[in-house]
């Protein structure tokens, strides 16, 4: 495991998931899904609720849920098999509030993260300041508790902690679904900058094709536990190949009033 700064060069190795299947009893939830997230790419995984996209993403992040049977799904990066909780990979969840300890300040969270990597003292302090600045948080948030921060600020803090962990890859599951559009825009812009300026590889799970249109380099579509289409945003919007992609697109266009359904004003 290297310990280079997030802005320095990293080995150009993609994060890969070998064919993964997940069963609940006899019922398949995810079937033979493989994925690859290259460095410096923002890869999106889209699909309706229940399509298996979150299960796939959390398996990639090393989280296996109890009661489910996992087969395949080896996660590799640079030839190394990654075990759960590996330091190169960070998982950013939809509801940041539940991911923080309510009784710990932002600074305590950050220092704890660094302590697990053996970084302490003045070095740790300066690294925390650096990471907060990188995600656009004022240093004044350090003594604050989770309840004192908005959802958008907590989501930034999650990303700051991912940077402190030297994550080369971030798996973000609907990270902005609970945020208002302005906050959403700022978080996605931040992720996009980290991808293109700091070569972070990001897998972003979303149900919003607007996110794909604005920010994605690649898009994978899941339906009924299978990967049904892997393409670029441009091709997805121009020539969707799968029924699932066409359904998502037609709902997306309806959201923008492009289906002839208008409030009869």
């Amino acid at each position: 495991m290297t310990s280079m700064s997030s802005s320095q060069a990293r080995p150009e190795m993609a994060l890969t998931l070998s064919p993964l299947s997940i069963h609940h009893g006899p019922r398949p939830l995810v079937q033979e899904v493989s994925l690859s997230v290259p460095p410096a790419r923002l890869v999106t995984l889209v699909g309706q609720s229940g399509s298996g996209k979150s299960l796939t993403a959390s398996a990639l992040a090393g989280t296996h849920l109890p009661g489910l049977r996992y087969s395949g799904g080896e996660v590799r990066s640079g030839g190394e098999v990654q075990s759960g909780g590996g330091v190169r990979l960070a998982h950013v969840l939809q509801n940041p509030r539940t991911a923080f300890n309510a009784l710990m300040t932002m600074e305590a969270h950050a220092l704890e993260t660094l302590a697990t990597l053996g970084v302490r003292g003045a070095t740790a302090q300066s690294r925390v300041d650096e990471a907060l600045t990188q995600v656009g948080l004022a240093l004044e948030v350090k003594p604050l508790y989770p309840f004192e921060l908005s959802g958008g600020m907590l989501q930034r803090m999650m990303i700051a902690i991912a940077l402190l962990r030297k994550a080369s890859f971030v798996i973000a599951d609907e990270p902005t679904s609970d945020l208002d559009p302005r906050a959403q825009h700022r978080i996605l812009t931040l992720l996009s900058e980290l991808v293109h300026h700091h070569r972070l590889g990001v897998l972003l799970i979303t149900h919003d094709l607007g996110v794909v249109a604005a920010f994605a380099d690649e898009v994978h579509v899941m339906a009924d536990g299978r990967l049904v289409e892997s393409t670029t945003p441009e091709l997805l919007f121009e020539r969707p190949q799968s029924a699932a992609a066409r359904d998502l697109l037609s709902a997306h266009r309806a959201l923008y009033g492009e289906e002839g359904f208008h409030a009869g004003a």
């Binding site: 812009t189 996009s192 607007g210 249109a213 920010f215 441009e234 919007f237």
Partner: peptide
Amino acid sequence: AVLPLAPIKASAHKTHRAP
């Protein structure tokens, strides 16, 4: 801040303009 309906053409990078 409303996200675009479709990908913005001819943008080399996906750094969508900020609001």
